[in-house]
Simulated assay, not measured.
Amino acid sequence: MTAPLDASSKELEASPEAVLDGPAKAIQGRSLGQIAWMRLKRDRVAVVGGVVIVLLILIAIFAPLLVSWLGHPPAEWHREKIDPAIQAPIGSFGGMSWDFLFGVEPTTGRDLFSRVLYGARISLLIAFFATLLCVMLGTLLGMIAGFFGGWVDMIISRLMDIFLAFPLLVFALALAGVIPDKAFGLSGDTLRITLLVFIIGFFNWPYIGRIIRGQTLSLREREFVDASRSLGARSHTILFKEILPNLLAPILVYATLLIPTNILFEAALSFLGVGVRPPTPTWGGMLADAVHNYQVAPNYMIFPGLAIFITVLSFNLLGDGLRDAFDPKAR
């Protein structure tokens, strides 16, 4: 038999508080968002892409302020910077100097730095609103098709097939070409931007719609959906309070991957001359003008092209990082 412990031996026993060096704390669980944020912070490439995106957004917002400090108004001509004999910028590297950081445009002498900054406002504005419209339509119709199934799913799925087979670029060229300068109570740049947002967003929703439909088909068979049905929840309550929160991860990931696609599409339309009309600067429109002048002013093509490249690359890097962060099988 073991001898009973006396008071002195009890004092030698370490209490749990002494081991933990403080009061015991309950173990707290982590949500999917917290786990994804921890994974995303460890992905340095995705973090760099996110930082660049934030900088681009700030540049677009504060473009007038930056231009007032470092440049000249984007529509202001500086013919004294142009050689009248060859209609090319005077000086090396397209007229680059401390007053004109990116040089000047051939023929007009407009400040290329200011036009690139103002072009970011148009490109990002169209891309963000077009993506928002695309995500809203694709999410709503994809959820409805996947949740209800049957003839509802059949109609929406065939509608997706029609939109996916539609020659979008040809339709955009035709529609943008026939719309007059004033329509639907809008005019000028407002009309062109609204038209581009509608074309890009309305005809691209099936891509995200198919993804959301597939995810909804899987989620509608889960236990928490059955529990909501057993408690008497209606269909719209299950859709927006049970299924939609579980779709936020794929929606966010696909949206970040869709924004660069929309930026490129807007640049392509502006390049073809059916986007926002001059003298409003856009990256695609500047590239279209640079085709005829890049031999005498290569910076006229380099800087708008570099702006598109950096923007698209940053969104793609962030989208890949978000996809890995929300993947439950990722290490």
Rank of each mutant, 00 (worst) to 15 (best):
A24K: 10
A26R: 14
I27P: 12
I27R: 11
G29A: 11
R30L: 10
S31C: 03
I35F: 00
A36V: 07
W37N: 03
M38L: 12
R39M: 02
K41W: 07
R42C: 00
R44A: 05
V45T: 12
V47M: 15
V47G: 10
G50D: 05
V52K: 10
V54R: 04
V54L: 13
L55F: 13
L56Y: 01
L58D: 02
L58H: 05
L58A: 15
I59E: 08
I59M: 15
A60P: 15
A60F: 02
A60W: 05
F62K: 11
A63D: 13
L66V: 15
L66Y: 06
V67W: 10
L70E: 02
G71N: 11
H72N: 07
P73Q: 13
P73S: 10
P74D: 03
A75Y: 06
A75M: 04
A75Q: 11
H78D: 09
K81A: 14
K81M: 15
P84Q: 08
P84G: 14
A85M: 09
I86Q: 00
Q87S: 11
P89D: 06
G94W: 08
G95K: 07
M96P: 04
M96R: 15
S97P: 15
S97A: 07
S97M: 11
W98F: 04
D99W: 07
D99Q: 14
F100V: 09
F100G: 11
G103S: 05
E105T: 14
T107I: 15
G109Y: 06
G109D: 05
R110L: 02
V116Y: 09
Y118G: 03
Y118V: 09
Y118T: 13
G119M: 08
A120L: 15
A120H: 08
L124W: 04
L125I: 01
I126G: 06
A127P: 13
V135K: 02
V135G: 05
M136K: 00
L137S: 12
L140A: 12
L140G: 01
L140Q: 03
L141A: 04
I144M: 11
A145Q: 07
G149N: 00
G150H: 10
V152T: 14
V152W: 06
D153W: 12
S157I: 04
